[in-house]
Amino acid sequence: MLEPRLVQTTFFKNVLEALSDLFIEAHFEFSRTGLELQAIDTSRVALVALVLRAEAFNHYLCDRGLSMGLNLADMAKAFRCANNDDIITIKAEEDWTDTVTFTFESPEDGEILEFDFDFVGSNGVPLEIPEYQESEYQAIVRMPSAKFMRICKKLSSFGDSGDRDPVVIISVYKERVRSFARGKTGTSTTVCLQTQTVDKPKEPTLIEMKEEVSLIFDLKYMNSFSKASTLSDQVTINLSSELPAVFECKIAELGYIRYYISPRKE
């Protein structure tokens, strides 16, 4: 029997809430070194990769590898029933049946909650993702995640363009990043300049530009990532017209969540 135990219920609640809008199924892999999750959206434009090393958990035990495809919406629903301080135990039988059991144990209430999830397909993941070098990107933008969330919210104001999915154009030029969305009844633009002020030294917006770049993204991907970005203080956006764009938030040196989005030039 394989039996990882962990206590990051709140963290997983937030991850599942952020991902389950866009990604239906995910591939989970628990190993001695930690958890790796990958999911791809149904239009196969975006891939999310979550890596969380074992040290990121208060308590993590996993003697042997355990990997499976699971439905994210079902998991989000199950996690909504759990308390934030529950201990989670994940069990799968050695003879490899096609279900996994998540047990939520509340030490305070003396309550145990058990969910069995059937394995599902995982839509083509996991994939081998190369580590791209920063120098391969035309521009890299770093900003506080709160600022990124504000921008996404503003872009959504005119985001509903009717029959087509609303899109956002992100352009980097002259040390500034411009985000533009066109809706049915108007447009919304935000321009961010590089900032590194003395009063907020920990919250700079940094723009590294090798050359100008302009890319189009469906607003839904930006909105989903902005939800996931609550897990970190800062976001990094790597832009290239030849490589997948990467929206990344690091989780306190113990892992990361990355959205890879297929490039679409303006």
């Binding site: 791809i40 196969r44 434009v45 975006a46 891939l47 083509g124 996991p126 994939l127 081998e128 993702i129 190369p130 189009i216 490589l243 997948p244 890879y260 989005i261 297929s262 490039p263 679409r264 030039k265 303006e266």
Partner: peptide, 14 residues
């Protein structure tokens, strides 16, 4: 605009 390709074309199956 240019057609958006599948994200899978950038990554290999392990």
């Amino acid at each position: 605009g240019a057609k958006q390709g599948s994200i899978m074309s950038f990554f290999k199956k392990p």
